[in-house]
Design a protein around this nucleic acid. Sequence first.
DNA 1: TATTGTTATACTCTATAACTATA
DNA 2: TATAGTTATAGAGTATAACAATA
Lengths: 136, 136
Amino acid sequence: MTAANPLVDALVRCTFEVTGALTRIGAENDLSLTQLRVLGILRDRRLRVTELAAYLGLEKSTMSGLIDRAERRGLLARERSPEDGRVVDVFMTPAGREFAQRVYDDVRRTLAPALEKLRPEQRTQLLELLEALTAR
Amino acid sequence: MTAANPLVDALVRCTFEVTGALTRIGAENDLSLTQLRVLGILRDRRLRVTELAAYLGLEKSTMSGLIDRAERRGLLARERSPEDGRVVDVFMTPAGREFAQRVYDDVRRTLAPALEKLRPEQRTQLLELLEALTAR
DNA sequence: TATTGTTATACTCTATAACTATA
DNA sequence: TATAGTTATAGAGTATAACAATA
């Protein structure tokens, strides 16, 4: 038995709510939560397949499928590494970048209203707390 | 174009981190994120299929499959409503309740350490902010 | 031999459409 | 007719195991 922990419970509840919003916005753009996350990760990075899988906590084989489908849509591209012939780099196409920008704008527009119900000093507090929480 | 919003970004990043932890703990117990959420919702409620689908933002047909698999594992049970023969109520079995308790204990044990890095008054703040955020 | 990535396979998750039973 | 739920179907997401190519 573990003691009740209202803070963990509130965090989990909030997570499910935000995830719900993200899933809905993703679906409106034919993106699963995972694809949405892939786009977020690759926005400012170029990663090999294994690294991407590690970021997402998924198997390489799962990544292959995700990349296949995104590549078929013209959002991502693959490139064999010149240094190591086994490695495949993955990165966003210009179209993918533009698309991701639009979708994440949508995310901001959707989530901002709830956050604006907080007082300004509460928003500052929350930002600090979230950053403290996700700092490694 | 939407202005950058560090607070939304921090919230999304936090959401993906917590989701990652929930997915991993779920996987260790052969539960998808959705099944984990079903167990959380039904912990203190008895809902008809349509209500459950609404809670999760899913189609009724998707619910049927989710319930089927959880029922096959002995975690959930269905019961036809005596008042309205079309309605099917869904609820947790004792085994399901016990199982959910164990899994959510695991969730608390996993997430608590990160939260304990915050100072006590920060934890109080965070709880208040999360509650303000998810209040309807 | 070890590592990187893909393919084959099987199962879950999901939506849409068609259906059954009840109201 | 309308509503509640299930079934059929198809596609995406996921893991495991086997594989090919490269190091």
